[in-house]
Design a protein around this nucleic acid. Sequence first.
DNA 1: ATACATCCGCTGCTTACATCA
DNA 2: TCTGATGTAAGCAGCGGATGT
Length: 332
Amino acid sequence: MESGRLIFNATGSGQMLFLDCGAGGGATGGLFHRGGRPMLGLEEGRGVKRPFFTSPDELLEEEYYDEQLPEKKRRLTPEQVHLLERSFEEENKLEPERKTELARKLGLQPRQVAVWFQNRRARWKTKQLERDFDRLKASFDALRADHDVLLQDNHRLRSQVASLTEKLQEKDVTEGGASGAADAAVDVKASLAAEDMEEPAVAESAAFEAQQVKSEDRLSTGSGGSAVVDADALLCGGQFAAVDSSVESYFPGGGEDHHYHGCGMGGGAMNHGVGGGIQSDDDGAGSDEGCSYYPEEDEAAAAAAFFAGQAHHHADDDEDAAGQMSWPWMWS
DNA sequence: ATACATCCGCTGCTTACATCA
DNA sequence: TCTGATGTAAGCAGCGGATGT
């Protein structure tokens, strides 16, 4: 609560009455919305209009704080924002001493500095989530494309097997006898071996398919299996290594505090459990560009879990829907 | 040592104002 | 000039940690 001002719920519906008891002489009042902004400013009658911002010297006069009235919101000047941004880059947390010092330098109230830092952290977090999402989406798209290629390989190889099997049967009918069949089997094996030599991806494809079958089995059984495809399956072929593990990310993990490297967000743990909390290490410098909010060690798993949800969603029509992947907001 | 109350700062959400296309 | 979108300052509730009793 700001000093010298009493605010109370006057209507019971979120509107608040304020009564300014400042030293400037004479209480003033007004009607607030829930948000605290004045709806009916009665202070106009005072006849004295002060600028919302003033010089640091003026702010050092303690009584000035008390005289502050709920004026219209004013934007911070570019210079003030610049200094606040620089300070934020150095350290995104605000110790009381630093807050006071910044307020003095900027000609703001300490409360304004604190609010600016709170809002700035929230903006940073939002941007970080957007960046993380874009990055994960790109990784997923790449993985999906690789998957499609493997499916095509799989289809091609299946048709080859069918063709060779047909040949084998023809040969068996034509020549008759066990020895002929054995020779034909050798031919098929040789053909497949030659194919393997040409395209090493075949073995990989087979492994992928096996994994896929495993996953689908588990998805279809319900009991005992995870509701999502496990990370191993998604990580097949090291695809998710493509999720740049060198970049920070925002996924909260397991309720633990995590570090967010290289974000220019100096140390100091958030003491709030909700939303994970921002914590940084000491090597941070510069802007928060390219940084993420979730810890390296959790990122691949988080990405896997996130997109596994989609894999699960599409497990039934996986092949038919190849190339038509949708996103969670499309599932409804 | 433990329980409780209080203070303080934080996050998340929200609102109203400022600005711009 | 009006309007809708967007960004921002600041309010509130609720939570958790620190501190005093």
